[in-house]
Design a binder for these strands. Structure first.
Length: 435
RNA sequence: GGAGACGUGGCCGAGUGGCUUAAGGCAGUGGAUUGCUAAUCCACGGGCGUCUAAAAAGCGCCGCACAGGUUCGAAUCCUGUCGUCUCCGCCA
């Protein structure tokens, strides 16, 4: 959510953001008109309350029947006004959620995914001296993927990872955990962003995978559109998370953080749940798009001054991981329509998947500025004693079905076996996944 | 799932219907004083509205888990919800 004062004073900026992001064009006018009504009602109710307090004060000296009558009358008027005010405020808040975050200055204006800009490329697609296969063919032959039985048991878009590939996931977890808790490694990465930038370790977290509706709303990840994508457990009025981000960012709701704690970095490991309601017919083959996958997610809380650097830092971490795994990728600066409502900026890394013959999204980094923090009410106390909203950043460390797929397809060998990337071998304890 | 206790500011903690402008303490920030440090003293401390070009100051309203209710008046009484703790039950 944006600051209403900012919206009032910068209507042209907000209107441009709405246009560039392609969100509801009515929202701005609605917010402003509801805001006018809201403030008018506030003034009226406060006048009545003020008079009521005045009367109550006089009763300290003695009772007065005329004043009792007046006060009773005030109460009637007040309860009507307060009801009206609450309705207007609810509607205003709904409209406020529809106003998107303002895109950062370097975000390209564009109407969809195809207008994202490639800003960097690392590695080259490998040429195989034999006929390469996709992960499903490889996995079924090696008996490390079983989608047929998953479909019998759970339905479409589920899979079993088995044997060597299940072990590979645990190896990836340990590998990433080691990098993100090593200040020595992080220092190199942080210095690449800006000499001397904080190399503070990430705190590993295993967060809840369920979240209350109200809290979900406040993370700006439960818009009407988002709801189609979420699993909701009616019996318990609770949602399954789509990413660890959702329960990590809300962890500090209604808190005032000490500036010495910042940057506060978490590495969350969780299963992620997605209905994939809008993706019928897309990626139906294989493990690329599932209802359920595990993910290591980075989440940072920083001051406003550091948030852009932190965003770059998280991207640098993502790149470090892909480079260590020797997976070729392209780096995209996402355009206004593709970054999403709460983002000020977004960067994707698309990894080369030989079996698909294309680069596919494996990482995403979101810069949220104070958009999430405002509704979650997360602040930081600055050295001068005042408080300001924190800025939040989130980014993928490793998304499990996609990186394992990238490993399978990039590391496949002529005999159909899969070589384990060097950096993972100490964690798997084996060098190949064979029949 | 059952029984009980509890939920007050950044933190601790008093407050059982109007003497509360939420006491007092700790931490923080600004200032005064003092060779330095420490100590002492004073002030400030959340949100919204109003005023303002913007702010500050001022004024008003709200704020004692959340939502309702009773009352001229609620942190205080009542109801519901959520959460925490203790015990019992169930359970990996």
């Amino acid at each position: 959510m944006l600051d209403i004062k900012f919206i009032r004073e910068n209507q042209d900026v907000v209107a441009k953001a709405i246009k560039d992001k392609g969100t509801n064009p009515e929202a701005l006018a609605e917010v402003l008109s509801l805001d006018d009504t809201r403030r008018r009602l506030i003034i009226e109710t406060e006048a009545l309350r003020s008079r009521r307090n005045e009367i109550a004060d006089k009763f300290k000296k003695g009772k007065d029947d005329a004043l009792v009558a007046e006060s009773k009358q005030l109460k009637d008027k007040l309860s009507k006004l307060e009801l009206e005010l609450k309705e207007v405020e609810d509607r205003w808040l709904e409209a406020m959620y529809e106003i998107p975050n303002i895109p950062w200055e370097d975000v390209p204006v564009g109407a969809g995914e195809t207008e994202n800009k490639v800003v960097a490329e690392w590695g080259k697609p490998k040429k195989f001296a034999f006929k390469s296969k996709d992960h499903l063919a490889l996995g079924e032959a090696l008996d490390v993927i079983d989608m047929k039985r998953a479909s019998k048991v759970a339905g479409s878009r589920f899979g079993y990872w088995k044997g060597g590939m299940a072990a590979l996931e645990f190896a990836l977890v340990q590998f990433v955990l080691r990098i993100l808790t090593s200040e020595e490694t992080l220092k190199k990465i942080a210095d690449s962003v800006e000499k001397g930038y904080s190399a503070k370790s990430f705190i590993p977290v295993i967060p809840p995978v369920m979240i209350k509706p109200d809290m979900y709303r406040k993370t700006a990840r439960l818009s009407e559109e988002d709801k189609n994508e979420r699993y909701y457990l009616q019996q318990d009025d609770i949602y399954l998370i789509g990413s660890a981000e959702h329960t990590l960012v809300s962890m500090h709701a209604d808190e005032v953080l000490d500036i010495k704690q910042l940057p506060l970095r978490y590495l969350g490991f969780s299963t992620c749940f997605r209905r994939e309601a809008g993706s019928y017919g897309k990626d139906v083959k294989g493990m690329l798009r599932l209802h359920q996958f595990d993910k290591l997610e980075m989440e940072s809380f920083t001051t406003a001054a550091d948030s852009f650097k932190e965003h770059q830092f998280l991207i640098a971490v993502e790149e470090y991981i892909l480079q260590a795994l020797e997976i070729p990728y392209q780096k995209f600066l996402k355009c206004t329509a593709d970054i999403g409502n709460p983002n000020a900026r977004g960067v994707d890394l698309n990894s080369w998947l030989p079996g698909q013959g294309e680069y596919r999204e494996t990482h995403t980094a979101d810069m949220m500025t104070d958009y999430q923090a405002r509704r979650l009410n997360i602040k930081v106390r600055k050295p001068d004693g005042t408080t300001e909203l924190v800025h939040t950043n989130d980014a993928t460390a490793v998304a499990m079905s996609r990186i394992p797929i990238a490993v399978m397809e990039n590391y496949q060998q002529k005999d159909g076996s899969i070589a384990v990337p060097k950096v993972l071998q100490e964690f798997t304890g084996f060098k190949d996944i064979k029949k």
